[in-house]
Nucleic acid binder design. Structure first.
Lengths: 259, 259
DNA sequence: AAGTGGTCTAGACCACCAT
DNA sequence: TGGTGGTCTAGACCACTTA
């Protein structure tokens, strides 16, 4: 009788682990399972009791490993249901990766227009950010993001062509959901975190045209490097933001919970 | 025989806690002790075993409460030494509250010049941010921050006068360490987190003069509201940043640890 | 009712720091 | 050596979800 839904196999954790605490060894094993695709995004993990049993560790140790992965947004727990590999949905996008909001504090998911799609060779800056040789083949995608109909962000994404084989303008235009959802669902690439460096610049002609601001107007430029497992860069993005009616928001330490 | 160093008293946790998990009740009790000054910044807390005993909870429950407070940077654990109420030192400043760094990624603590110090009545914007009535008495402090000798940030801080009685230009000028260290050490006010809203603006004449840039040059403006316990605002700050040679850096989810 | 994660316990032993 | 936090265990029981 074939298993209708093969459960990922977890082997017992080897005892000697080079001074690494056991719960980190467990965490690394879970990471490996997530990264390798043994547990695809959205899938239920085996229950904590099963996992602990399979890895031959106590449930407390297993839970500690899961705790860290939940804190890093790689797993999601739902009481009564199970533990899931985190998906890139609209909520996660807003919470983790989109920090532009109206001056009155209202947040919403932007609508996206594709402005251009090109295959070209990497300039120095994106190449360095992506760990590629200058001139390596890349995809360059330009998007315009609107909030309540108004153009607010002009994004230029640079992607290593090698990682996104088969990504065409057509597939991009047809996508639903966020672009990180697309990376994850279609190319098996999960963005786990990002680093942004912001500065103020004068809008050049192109940005001014796309955003409908005056050439030379002060705008924010945000350069993002998005990373997948193992700190490997998978996207370099330069965003130009019209901050006339919107802000770029940054929480310096998020409150854990109300107490 | 008087106690040379009175240990804070922790009462047993009442059993019925309105559905709140026990570890959160413990956390709230620890927060109360920190906030009330029973455990001043830098002081060693009673050991985990003592605390658990005094509150009549298991050590695991006590540790879970401490875990959250450590994650919020309110407590610091040092193996072999004890658990301490977190202090605002240079490290914490750089890590949690100062996000400007050189384009090459180097980070350093800025030097501060006091530009002006005034007592005045709050404008609408700072009043709203601080939860004060417009016109309430406030202190307004202007600082210039230098990195490697170069002026990079022009800060205007607005503080509720009521909270900082006795703060004078002289005391400010004489301070050592960060200003949050001063708030904590001299006025018993601990900044626990902050929210920043950034945008690009054209430098006005004052900012241009202080920073040594052209009037009208694009600069970043960051409006920060700093909060103490209970989400109470204690400082409103507008920073103008010359981003010609520096960036404002933002990590979208920090990696927990290397695994 | 059965299965999941969430909380809580009461220990044991280890690693680190001071003296 | 003694005291601290760090790790790990093996349970019990609760709260939530689905069926």
């Amino acid at each position: 009788m074939p298993a209708p839904h093969r459960s990922p196999a977890f082997a017992a954790i080897p005892s000697a682990a080079a001074g690494l605490p056991l719960y980190r060894v467990v965490k690394r094993e879970l990471l490996r399972a997530i990264e390798s695709g043994d547990c695809p995004p959205g899938q239920t993990l085996p229950s904590e009791a099963e996992l602990a049993g399979a890895m031959a560790v106590s449930i407390g140790t297993l839970r500690r490993a899961v705790d860290e992965l939940v804190a890093e947004h790689l797993l999601v727990r739902r009481q009564g249901l199970g533990t899931f590999v985190a998906m890139h949905d609209a909520d996660r996008f807003l919470f983790q990766f989109f920090h532009v909001e109206r001056a009155d504090g209202r947040r919403e998911v932007p609508t996206v227009d594709l402005v251009s799609f090109e295959r070209l060779r990497a300039d120095d800056e994106p190449a360095q950010a992506l760990g590629l040789k200058p001139g390596a083949p890349v995809l360059q995608i330009e998007n315009r993001l609107r909030l309540q109909g108004q153009a607010v962000v002009y994004d230029r994404l640079t992607l290593p062509a090698q990682l996104f084989k088969g990504l065409t303008e057509k597939r991009l235009a047809e996508r639903t959901g966020t672009i990180y959802q697309l990376y994850q669902a279609e190319y098996g690439i999960t963005v786990v975190r990002a680093v942004e460096r912001a500065r103020a610049i004068a809008a050049d002609r192109t940005a001014a045209r796309v955003l409908g601001v005056a050439t030379g107007a002060p705008v924010m430029q945000v350069r993002r490097t998005a990373l997948t497992f193992g700190e490997r860069p998978v996207e370099y993005r330069v965003s130009v933001i019209d901050t006339a009616r919107h802000d770029y928001v940054h929480q310096l330490t998020r409150p854990t919970r109300a107490v």
